[in-house]
């Protein structure tokens, strides 16, 4: 069975990552109502879906890998996490009940908990589905993120 390479994912290149957090801020911004980075963080209390990690010379930006076998999908008790026909892993924040199972099982730490008085749900990279092209890739100034077909 030859699988058609339909899914495009964001691939981090750690050799090029300069830990500038543009990906994080761009992510937060495009997922906000205001589309303004300051308001996104300060008024809408949003958090980035990409995580920049730094340890000395090693740094990388990490977001949902849309795993071929997503453990988060196995573990989701509410049916909020679903895999589409191309293998993209979607998380419906409205449906999510905040059981944190996905947080507990994601091998990449790419499903994050949003724990606020008014809302409790997990959130993760949606590949900027609404936008058509991942904002993090567009924002990266050093070509440390590329948008490519699933490998």
């Amino acid at each position: 069975m030859s699988k058609k390479r339909k899914l495009m994912k964001v691939y981090p290149i750690e050799e090029n990552c300069i830990s500038c957090r543009y990906c994080e801020v761009a992510c937060t911004m495009v997922h906000s109502e205001s589309k303004d980075p300051v308001k996104a963080y300060k008024l809408e209390n949003l958090l980035p879906r990409a995580t920049v990690e730094v340890k000395e010379a090693v740094s990388l930006s990490l977001m949902c890998r849309h795993c071929k076998h997503p453990f988060c999908f196995d573990a989701c008790i509410s049916g909020a996490i679903m895999v589409d026909e191309n293998g993209k892993v979607n998380l419906d924040e409205e449906k999510c009940v905040g059981c944190w199972n996905c947080v507990l099982v994601c091998p990449f730490g790419a499903a994050h908990p949003m724990i606020r008085e008014e809302k409790r749900h997990s959130f993760k990279c949606d590949l900027c589905g609404d936008r058509g092209f991942p904002a993090c890739v567009e924002a990266c100034p050093n070509r440390a993120l590329i948008y490519d077909f699933e490998r």
Binding site: C20, R21, Y22, V25, T28, V38, S59
Partner: peptide, 13 residues
């Protein structure tokens, strides 16, 4: 400080 979103990019850079 109002515009600072504590992304810490500057700290790392």
């Amino acid at each position: 400080d109002y515009k600072c979103v504590r992304c810490k990019s500057c700290v790392d850079q």
